[in-house]
Design a protein around this nucleic acid. Structure first.
Lengths: 233, 233
DNA sequence: GGCCAAATTTGATTTGGGTCAATCGGGTTC
DNA sequence: GAACCCGATTGACCCAAATCAAATTTGGCC
């Protein structure tokens, strides 16, 4: 983490107010909440926290994308998710993080010290309720991803990933057939349980079939129906 | 579901009080809670709820084992988890179940109607807190399972499964090298993202190497260290 | 106990995706 | 603008696990 905003930000005009945990707070609470968090920035590739680190903070992602991953002792990596603005990171049992998180590109987050945040929650059940909702939604996504990892072919994995990623971006920024992919091919491979070569080949194949166009920093959906058909299978 | 206990059970002497959601309730609350749930039984293979069903109830598993799974349109199945006594099922966003649940063998559960249960939670933040803890623990398990599905070999998957299952049984019933496996080989395969043949072959291989012994309805760990070495890899 | 159906194991063969090895761009530096 | 670097692509080959196909064991049920 490289710098701390010289203060001067307000929750009430935060871009992600409305989708993040803080959506459950009223204006009075928000004013108090404001003092708990501080805005922090991370540079490309910087690690925000590592698996097995003691949890000292929670993070509310404001801008940018993060990869969340676990490593096996021999270095194999599984990306368990990509975090986007509005995602809340750091909740755990056991007081240790159970995955690592890196910034993909520049990232801005709202950081909360664990203890005061915990105290703030205590007498605000609706905030706890909100956190619970987010956890349950993530759990549902995690289960969907298990199906993908355990039972889908490489083509299906890639098609499903493109559509799912696109959906998330649409929810944030509105609809478009252009899908930016800020993460590397290796990241995509480690998310889908494939190798970088297979991801690359599958992209090329989709492009040859006219389903997508590979552009700089992403892809463009040329034939969404075809991609959907592949993903459904 | 086939029968309803003619009443006459008490939360205070419930076998799983202490590990389940209700661990967070004091005796006075427990007396009230008692009236919300009713004990239900399911026979072998019976479906407790199906994916996409509207959620009308939550279940607290008291006895037996359940498989939790998702199906792809073409019938491929991914088991997303096995539920054991103490597990709480049915929480979701969206008011629909996001997986199906079958009884493996006879099952007893405590069933709660969604609406009164929701009302009961509302003014009991510590119960919500408990549910949140369980959700977060499940999320952590789900992420571990993603690593297994995406990045582990067949041998590692099977070894990891046996040790993990054993751990869960130890937590419930105490330590033993004998590991009952009430689920079928097909269930294990669908949990590990393998085929039934690969699971069977891997079991046989482990037995030939003296790591385990295949017994009726389960396995016996002959050389736990060797199995652990395989799982760690 | 004997018979059928289902589950499991075992064997032979195939294949999707991994591994290894170049090669290609596109960006940056000097 | 040449040299370099690094991510991405492409090609050739290989192998772990899937598929296909029996054989065998197990369990329920008359």
């Amino acid at each position: 983490m490289t710098m701390i905003e010289p203060n001067g930000h307000f929750c009430s005009d935060c871009a992600i107010r409305g989708i993040a945990v803080c959506a459950s707070l009223d204006l009075a609470e928000l004013r108090e909440f404001e003092h708990l968090g501080r805005r922090v920035h991370f540079a490309t590739g910087e690690t925000v926290f590592s698996e097995e680190d003691i949890t000292t903070s929670f993070f509310n992602l404001l801008e940018g994308v993060m990869r969340l991953y676990k490593l096996l002792p021999d270095g194999r990596r599984q990306i368990v998710g990509f975090a986007l603005p509005g995602d809340f990171l750091g909740m755990n049992m056991s007081s240790r993080h159970n995955f690592s998180a890196d910034a993909i590109g520049a990232v801005t987050a709202c950081q909360f010290a664990k203890v005061p945040f915990g105290r703030f929650i205590e007498d605000r059940p609706h905030l706890l309720q909100r956190i619970n909702e987010l956890a349950i939604r993530e759990l549902s996504q995690a289960r969907d991803h298990m199906v993908l990892l355990g039972r889908r072919s490489a083509d299906e994995k890639v098609a499903t990933f493109l559509l799912g990623w696109r959906e998330r971006l649409i929810a944030l920024k509105g609809s478009s057939n252009t899908v930016p992919l800020p993460m590397s091919r290796q990241d995509i491979a480690d998310y889908l349980g494939l190798t970088i070569e297979t991801v690359s080949r599958t992209f090329t194949k989709l492009e040859r079939h006219g389903a997508i166009e590979i552009i700089h920093g992403g892809i463009c959906l040329r034939d969404p129906a075809r991609v959907e058909a592949l993903a459904a299978a």
